[in-house]
């Protein structure tokens, strides 16, 4: 369980993280989403005690990270790829970090096996591809078999097989009852991996919800309707407070009323329906809407609009 309360980080006059409060629960994968520059990495560094908050606090199982002794047994973190001395081999890199927490060599070999690096364990880390660097980073996180895992953009640089591998890994770690907190800006990937998401923009909390709730709350959801008399049906929907607009293929896109209400309206008026299908927004659409709203709220900052746009 990770708990942030009023977490704030100020660099000079810029607020990188602005009074952020959230909690990350055990037994599920929690996605940490936001555009580039939203403050995700800064937040994770504060969680790990690497950066000191300007205000507020963040704890892991009730304790600030800096108070942990031999934290690898409690928290495994994959920070950025290549937080590695280029000249050291993968095996030596793991051994150095393992030893600092009193973890033995046998465990290092197990972890190399788990992340699939045994055959290149003697290779200098400087020669690793981005994907191999990511695997080594995940190996470090797994060293102490911790109950909490914090992964910063773990799928970056991975090939499709690697992405499936890490998705399986994260799902399984969560299924074993562990806390898995993973940052990403790849929404399609998070939709498959995360149970719960925390969305931030410009350092502020935009949403903390299950993936299902986040999508359900999106205004991008609508009902697609085709009928023998669209004009009449649109009037009825309008009278119920809904809105409708024609789609490119001639169907009606209805928002503001549910599919069952539309069906009742059509039935009551004797209008034959040819199609009545609720359309759900993707996590990406829900996310874009959230971050766009936050940009509108802070009018006059076109720089953010472009950075949110990049996420797609």
């Amino acid at each position: 369980m990770i708990e942030a309360t009023g977490l704030t980080k100020r660099y000079g006059s810029t607020l990188a993280v602005d009074a952020l409060s959230f909690s990350v629960k055990a037994g599920q994968v929690t996605g940490f989403l936001g555009p580039n520059g939203a403050g995700k990495s800064t937040t994770l560094r504060m969680v790990l005690g690497l950066d000191a908050p300007s205000g507020g606090s963040v704890t892991i199982d009730g304790r600030p990270y800096r108070e942990l002794h031999r934290p690898l047994f409690e928290v495994g973190a994959m920070l950025e790829a290549k937080a590695i001395h280029d000249g050291r081999s993968a095996r030596d890199h793991l051994r150095c970090l393992a030893r600092s927490n009193g973890i033995g060599r046998r465990r290092v070999e197990e972890v190399l096996e788990t992340v699939g690096l045994t055959s290149v364990a003697r290779k200098r880390a400087g020669l690793f591809s981005l994907g191999m660097g990511q695997r080594l980073g995940i190996g470090v996180a797994l060293l102490g078999d911790p109950g909490v895992l914090i992964l910063d953009e773990p799928v970056n640089g991975l090939d499709p097989e690697g992405i499936v591998w890490i998705r399986t890994l994260m799902r399984s770690l969560a299924a074993e009852g562990r806390t898995v907190f993973v940052s990403s800006h790849l929404m399609a990937e998070m939709a498959l991996t995360a149970d719960h998401v925390i969305v931030i923009g410009r350092g502020r909390l935009l949403a903390e919800a299950s993936v299902g709730d986040l999508i359900a709350g999106s205004s991008q959801n609508y009902v697609r309707v085709r009928s023998v008399d669209d004009r009449r049906l649109a009037e009825l929907i309008g009278a119920k407070g809904g809105a409708s607009r024609p789609e490119a293929d001639g169907a009606l896109a209805v928002t503001g009323v549910s599919a069952s209400v539309i069906g009742d309206l059509a039935g009551g008026d004797g209008i034959v329906l040819h199609e009545l299908s609720p359309q759900e927004a993707s996590l990406e659409e829900a996310y874009m809407e959230l971050t766009r709203n936050s940009v509108d709220y802070r009018a006059g900052t076109p720089a953010v609009t472009s950075s949110a746009g990049k996420v797609a």
Binding site: R45, G49, L50, P71, A83, I84, L97, V140
Partner: peptide, 11 residues
């Protein structure tokens, strides 16, 4: 960047 791995392992 190793320093961050170091301090994450030994705060």
């Amino acid at each position: 960047g190793m320093i961050r791995s170091t301090f994450a392992a030994v705060p």
